[in-house]
Simulated assay, not measured.
Amino acid sequence: MGGVFSGSLALLSDAFHNLGDSAAILLGYFAQLIGRHPETERRTYGYRRAEIIFALLNSIFLIVISVFLIFEAAKRFSHPQPINGELMLIVAVVGLLANLASAFLLQGGSKDSLNIKATYLHILSDALSSVGVIIGALFIWFTDISWIDPVITILVAIYICYETWPIIHQTLSILMQSSPELDYACIKKDIKQIDGITGVHHVHAWMIDEHRIIFSVHINLKDMKLSEVEPIYQRIETLLKNKYHICHITIQAEVERGIEETMFNTPADKATTSDEVE
C-alpha cells in the first residue's frame, strides 16, 4: 500500500520481495504439515515433496513479478511519475525495522536448524534491499530526481531473480530426480572394502526433498547363505547413513550377474569394464 500511494516502484518491488519471503515461510509450514502424513499405497514415499512444489511455485511467482517490475521501471524512464519521497522513506524504514525484528527472533534458532538459518539469512538480505530503498527515498526527497526510483526498482528486481533462480534450479533437479552431489567413486571404494564384496554396480540415487536421499545399489558376493548376507547389508547401510547421510537404502545381492557392469550402467559405459572405470 505504501508503494502504491507513494508512487514508488522501488518500494513496491521491495514489498513483493518481503511478501514472497513471508509466503515461502507460510507455505513451507503448511507443506511440512502435509509432509508429515504417513505413507500410503498410492504415496509409498509419503507427501514430502509438497514442500518442494510449494517452493517452486513461490519462486516462479517472484520471477514473474520481478520481470513485470522491470518492464514497468523501463516505462518510467520515458514517462516519469511524481513520487512522494517522504512517504516512501517512512514505509521503507518500517520495512527495515520489521526485517530486523524478524531476524532477531530467528537468530537463536538459526544455530540449531539449517532451515531456520537459511530463513534467517534470507531475511537479512531483505533488510539489505530495504536499505537500498531508503537511500533512494532520501535522494528523491531531497533532490526530487524521479529516475532514481526505476533504477532502484530494476536493481532490486535483478537481486530477487538472482536469489530465486538457485531455488528454482534445486527444486526442478529434485522433481526431475537428478542425482544428488555424492562422491560415487569414494562410495564404490568404501563398499568394496567390506569383506565379501567383489563388485558394485547399477547405482541409482535421487532425492525426495532437499534433505532425504534415496539410494539403491547392486553388489556382487561369493555364493553364501542369506543369513551371511544380512550382516554385510547392515555394514553397507551403516556406512552410507553415517558417512554420506543417505536415509533410505536398497541393496540387491548377486553372485556373477552384472559383475561386468559399471556403477551407472549407461549405454556409453557398457563397452567399459568396471576395472577400467576405477
Rank of each mutant, 00 (worst) to 15 (best):
Tyr244Gln: 06
Thr198Pro: 07
Pro180Asn: 08
Lys270Ile: 14
Glu210Gly: 07
Ile152Val: 14
Leu57Gln: 07
Glu254Gln: 14
Met88Val: 02
Gln32Arg: 05
Trp147Phe: 15
Gly258Trp: 02
Lys270Arg: 15
Thr119Leu: 00
Arg235Thr: 08
Ile135Val: 06
Glu163Leu: 11
Leu26Tyr: 02
Ile135Phe: 01
Lys111Phe: 03
His122Gln: 08
His248Phe: 07
Tyr159Arg: 07
Val91Asp: 00
Gln252Asp: 12
Val217His: 01
His218Val: 05
Thr143Gly: 04
Gly258Val: 08
Ala55Met: 06
His37Gln: 13
Cys186Phe: 04
Thr171Tyr: 04
Leu239Asp: 03
Ser13Gln: 05
Arg43Gln: 15
Phe142Asn: 10
Ile191Ala: 07
Ile259Val: 14
Ala103Val: 06
Leu19Ala: 11
Thr262Arg: 06
Ser113Ile: 01
Gln234Asp: 12
Ile232Phe: 03
Lys75Asn: 15
Ser179Ile: 07
Val94Ser: 05
Leu12Ala: 11
Ile197Phe: 05
Asp183Val: 09
Leu138Ile: 03
Glu230Gln: 15
Phe139Gln: 00
Lys222Ser: 14
Trp147Val: 11
Met224Arg: 10
Ala50Asn: 04
Glu276Ile: 11
Ser113Pro: 12
Glu181Ile: 08
Glu41Gln: 13
Gly46Trp: 06
His245Val: 02
Ser78Met: 12
Val4Lys: 03
Val131Ala: 09
Val131Arg: 04
Ile246His: 04
Leu69Val: 09
Lys241Ser: 08
Lys188Gly: 13
Leu138Ser: 05
His204Asn: 12
Lys241Trp: 04
Gln170Glu: 12
Ile60Cys: 11
Asp223Thr: 01
Asp183Thr: 10
Leu56Tyr: 05
Met207Ile: 01
Phe77Tyr: 14
Ile259Leu: 06
Arg257His: 12
His122Cys: 03
Arg76Phe: 06
Lys192Gln: 14
Ile53Thr: 10
His79Phe: 13
Asn265Trp: 01
Lys243Thr: 12
Ala98Leu: 11
Ile197Arg: 03
Ser274Cys: 10
Leu155Val: 01
Ile158Leu: 15
Glu254His: 12
Ala271Lys: 15
Gln193His: 10
Lys225Met: 11
Thr262Trp: 03
Asn265Pro: 06
Glu39Ser: 15
Ser22Arg: 04
Asp144Asn: 15
Ile249Met: 09
Pro267Phe: 09
Met207Tyr: 03
Leu12Gly: 08
Ser22Ala: 14
Phe54Thr: 07
Leu121Gln: 07
Gly109Ala: 09
Lys111Thr: 00
Tyr244Asp: 11
Tyr244Cys: 11
Glu163Asn: 09
Asp126Pro: 05
Gln177Lys: 11
Pro231Asn: 05
Leu12Glu: 05
Ser125Asn: 13
Thr119Phe: 00
Thr262Cys: 12
Met1Gly: 13
Asp21His: 02
Val64Asp: 10
Glu228Asp: 15
Ile246Asp: 12
Leu121Ile: 12
Val229Cys: 14
Met88Phe: 00
Glu51Met: 11
Val67Met: 06
His218Tyr: 10
